[in-house]
Structures are given as structure tokens and as C-alpha cells.
Amino acid sequence: MDVFMKGLSKAKEGVVAAAEKTKQGVAEAAGKTKEGVLYVGSKTKEGVVHGVATVAEKTKEQVTNVGGAVVTGVTAVAQKTVEGAGSIAAATGFVKKDQLGKNEEGAPQEGILEDMPVDPDNEAYEMPSEEGYQDYEPEA
């Protein structure tokens, strides 16, 4: 019985440690998101679009440190934060509304985080759909 109880105690310690790591990862992701939003706020009209992409990228980098179902929630929060940063930029006159959601080359930025393969159960990952990809044929 002692062996059984000791095993359960060790398992509990492992769960607590994993929860603490997840909590730490979420806190880091939130900190990076805040950094990115402050970065966007300090940019001029020309830099705002690039700044919004930076927020998304920093958040995406930190999301990889967070495991399990938390990833889905962090990704949703990050996307809403990026959308909010863009709205703030438009409201303050840093950028025109028609410039939001495009990178410096004018290509749409939507789907940055949505296409990231995420499995809350950590069982399997699927690649994003290939609808947006084109076949590449090298020139002879």
C-alpha cells in the first residue's frame, strides 16, 4: 500500500510541476504579447503594419512553449490582441483601416495563427491545408 501511495504522490508532483510550467509559459506569452502591443503603439504610420505582424510573430513563438489545451486559448487571445492593436492603430490615425491585415508588401496577414497546427491532446499534428499553395516548377 505504501508503494501505491508513494507512486500516487510522485504522479501528483509531476502534474503540479507540469501545471506550473504551463502557467509560466502562458505568463511569458502574455508578456511578449504586451511587449508587441507597446511596440505597435510606438510606431509611426509606416511601421504600424509591420508592428502588428511582430506582435503576432512574438506571440506565436511563445505559444510553442505552452502545451496542451492552453495553446488553443493563448492563440485565440493573441489573435484578438493583434486585431485590437490594429483597431487602436486605425482609431489613433497611425494607419488607414484599409491597410490593416496586410503586410508591407500588401499581402493579407489573416491566418497567421489560424494555420498553425495545434492539437490540445498532444496526440497528432496535421499540416495546414494546401489550398493556398501553388506547385513550383523550376525553369529549365
Rank of each mutant, 00 (worst) to 15 (best):
K58A: 13
L100V: 12
A27T: 03
A53H: 10
A140Y: 08
H50V: 04
K80D: 02
S129R: 04
V118G: 08
K10D: 01
L8N: 00
E46H: 05
S87H: 13
A30R: 02
A69P: 03
K45E: 00
V70Y: 03
E114W: 10
A89G: 07
A30S: 05
G68D: 15
A91R: 05
T59H: 01
V82M: 11
V49Q: 09
A69S: 04
T72I: 07
V71L: 09
G93A: 14
F4V: 01
E139R: 09
K34I: 05
L113N: 01
V95Y: 08
A89D: 03
A11N: 00
K32D: 00
D119G: 06
I112P: 10
V48H: 00
G25A: 15
E131C: 09
Y136A: 06
Y125K: 08
E83D: 08
A89W: 14
F4Y: 15
I112T: 06
K32P: 00
P128Y: 03
G68S: 03
G14C: 12
P128W: 09
A69N: 07
V70F: 03
S42T: 04
E46K: 07
G86Q: 14
G73V: 15
A89L: 15
V118I: 04
A30F: 15
K10F: 05
L8D: 00
L8Y: 02
E139T: 03
L8A: 01
P108V: 06
S129A: 04
N103F: 08
H50M: 14
K60S: 06
A19V: 10
V16Q: 05
D121K: 09
T44L: 12
E104F: 12
Q109G: 03
Q109H: 08
I112Q: 07
L100E: 07
E57Q: 05
V82W: 15
I88G: 04
V49G: 03
E104W: 05
G36F: 04
T59R: 01
V49F: 09
P108H: 07
E137K: 03
T59A: 11
V40R: 01
E131K: 10
Q79G: 04
A140D: 14
G106L: 05
V26T: 01
V66A: 07
E46Y: 06
V37W: 15
V95P: 07
A69T: 06
T59K: 01
A30E: 00
V52Q: 01
E61L: 07
P138Y: 08
K43L: 11
E123H: 10
Q134Y: 07
P117H: 06
A91L: 12
V55S: 01
K102E: 13
E28T: 08
K45G: 03
T72M: 14
A78Q: 03
Q99A: 10
S9P: 00
E46P: 04
V74M: 15
M5W: 04
T59V: 12
E13Y: 14
Q79P: 02
K21R: 13
T64S: 09
E131P: 13
T44H: 01
K12S: 04
P138Q: 04
K58G: 00
K34Y: 04
E104G: 13
K23N: 01
A78L: 13
T33V: 15
S129H: 05
D2G: 01
E61P: 02
E114C: 14
E123T: 09
V118H: 07
V16R: 09
V66I: 15
E13R: 07
L38Q: 07
K58D: 01
A107G: 13
H50T: 12
M1A: 00
K34F: 14
K45N: 01
D2Q: 13
A140S: 09
A11M: 15
G68E: 11
A56E: 01
T72S: 09
Q134G: 14
E35H: 07
V82C: 08
V55Y: 12
L38H: 05
V74Q: 01
D121C: 08
E131S: 08
Y125V: 12
G67A: 10
A29Q: 02
F4G: 00
G31E: 07
A91E: 04
E83L: 05
A17H: 05
K23A: 07
G36I: 15
V26N: 00
G25N: 04
A56D: 00
Y133V: 06
Y39E: 02
T22E: 00
L113H: 07
E13W: 07
E28Q: 10
T33M: 15
V55E: 00
V40L: 14
Y39P: 00
E104C: 02
K10H: 03
E83T: 07
V40T: 01
E13A: 14
E123K: 11
V70D: 01
G86F: 15
K45R: 11
V63N: 01
E28A: 06
V74L: 15
E13Q: 05
A30G: 01
L113D: 09
D119Q: 11
P138G: 14
G106N: 05
V16F: 10
V40G: 01
E20A: 14
P120Q: 13
V71P: 02
A56H: 08
S87L: 14
E123P: 08
E61K: 10
G132N: 14
N65H: 05
G41L: 02
G132E: 11
E35S: 07
E61F: 06
E131F: 14
E137A: 06
S129N: 04
E114D: 11
Q24E: 05
E114H: 07
N65R: 12
P117F: 10
V77W: 15
H50Y: 06
E114N: 13
Y39W: 11
G25P: 01
K58F: 12
G41N: 03
Q62Y: 06
K32S: 03
G31T: 09
N122A: 04
E123G: 14
K12M: 15
K80L: 15
T75M: 06
A76V: 09
A76H: 05
D135Q: 10
N122G: 02
T81C: 08
Q109E: 11
T72Y: 03
K6T: 03
A124W: 11
A78T: 08
G36M: 14
V74F: 09
V55P: 00
K96H: 08
V66H: 03
E13F: 08
G73H: 12
Y39C: 04
K102I: 11
E28I: 06
G84I: 14
D119P: 13
G84K: 11
G132S: 03
K12D: 00
K32V: 09
Y136L: 10
T59F: 15
G25W: 07
V82R: 04
